[in-house]
Design a protein around this nucleic acid. Sequence first.
DNA 1: TAGTGGTCTAGACCACAGC
DNA 2: CTGTGGTCTAGACCACTAT
Lengths: 271, 271
Amino acid sequence: MGVLTSARRDQRERRVTAVADNARRVPAYRQVADDLRARIVSGEYPSGSLIPSERELVEEFGISRPTVRNALDLLRNEGVILVEHGRGAFVRPTPTVHRLARNRLSRKAREDNQGTFLGDAATGGWTPSVSVRVRFESADERIAGLLAIAPGTEVCVRDRLMRADGIPVQLATSWLPRDITRDSVLEQMDTGPGGAYARIEEMGHRLTMFEELVGSRMPTSDELVSLQLAAGIPVLTVTRVAIAEGGRPVEVNDMVLSSERYQLHYMLSAE
Amino acid sequence: MGVLTSARRDQRERRVTAVADNARRVPAYRQVADDLRARIVSGEYPSGSLIPSERELVEEFGISRPTVRNALDLLRNEGVILVEHGRGAFVRPTPTVHRLARNRLSRKAREDNQGTFLGDAATGGWTPSVSVRVRFESADERIAGLLAIAPGTEVCVRDRLMRADGIPVQLATSWLPRDITRDSVLEQMDTGPGGAYARIEEMGHRLTMFEELVGSRMPTSDELVSLQLAAGIPVLTVTRVAIAEGGRPVEVNDMVLSSERYQLHYMLSAE
DNA sequence: TAGTGGTCTAGACCACAGC
DNA sequence: CTGTGGTCTAGACCACTAT
């Protein structure tokens, strides 16, 4: 009972009306994608439900399976459906969006909480957990530039994977000049109450400012796995530079977050 | 001269070594995509150059055209190549990233410049141009919530398309309560020197704070056209709320930017 | 007119999930 | 075992670009 039998008729008729037909024909796979998307937003296929199988759609629309797959690939890349091999295609539930307040970086907020991530957890009411790996390397061009040190200088690198209620939500990598971290708890996995920034200040580097550079891109395949992202969902990237009294950058922190789960919330004075 | 003849042989052999072969076979289309991607990063196919045609790749790899297309679709969705009907597929040049400084919202900066967008142009050294459309509508749930007004209240809506040196770089839509804009230049296309914020302040609504909510997503098909985006490139979304003395929200501004061309730069006090 | 990508067919066989 | 998606073939014809 192909919805597209009419489309195919249009295609034949087009030869006769080639000049008048300025509006391009909508290809079959796109019509099917549009149709299925409409059924999803209308609620006919509720969130999380199984949509018809590829072979069923072949029957319903009267088109070949590659064309059906082409349509489903579109919806997959849009993040509308989630396909599982051997099981079927499901309407992808959209997670709730959390706001990450960036003014949490103020000294007051830092003293009140154990760290930015733990502070967000306290506000959001979820259980945080963090895996940490510490290593040392030579600063590359980019990190050296951001830390205002010579390329090749030894830096302490802290890789972290943050989880909320067990599910991975954020990747973060920090670089700190080794002359600041040497023989301190900053080279340990647990930096203690108040987080790394509290330790840095205790060591005499009073923080005056944070710079954050926010961008977005598609995830790498590694990020796709470790953050358990769906296809078609970009990540937010935040590069934060912590600047101490005297203007010295003391930490660079690269963060990667699912754009589907997080928004960044900045409060800026108009003065 | 198929690179993949070996892959096909592997496939046959897999039947015999099914248990030992834990590592899944890499499908042909993925091998081809990986191969082409490697040629691009190695510089064998320089930025902007034409890559071999689909039929040529069919010959080279000894696979069918749909499989070649599958590989190219991957690279297209990654934003690695740019395909033009009738011409061929090109290595996509990556535009330079501009930083948009958000502290440009301070009163000093607003007085110095003609508006945030024009101010960025002055700093960046490019020629700005803006198309504006003004209309009126009833506030929907979201806008009403952000402006702290009743849903259905009449608002003034300003749609803008900003260009840098003629190429579209940013979409913006502002909503303002009609009781603020009525009979003012805010309902005209050109809001004059200092931009809309200067006019709002002149009318007695001294601005105290901006909230910015930053997210990211794949572009809609409309945005893809108007911002001339390549496939596989997400957009950054910024929702800004301008808050006047007394805590009243006076403007909501939704911005959409190419993530490939822009990063947002925030400066936050550590105090 | 020749070469390019865009769409589509009608199959085939494989791998995975679940009963 | 059955039904699901994953991969692949060998074509066909159309639309667009450039000459």
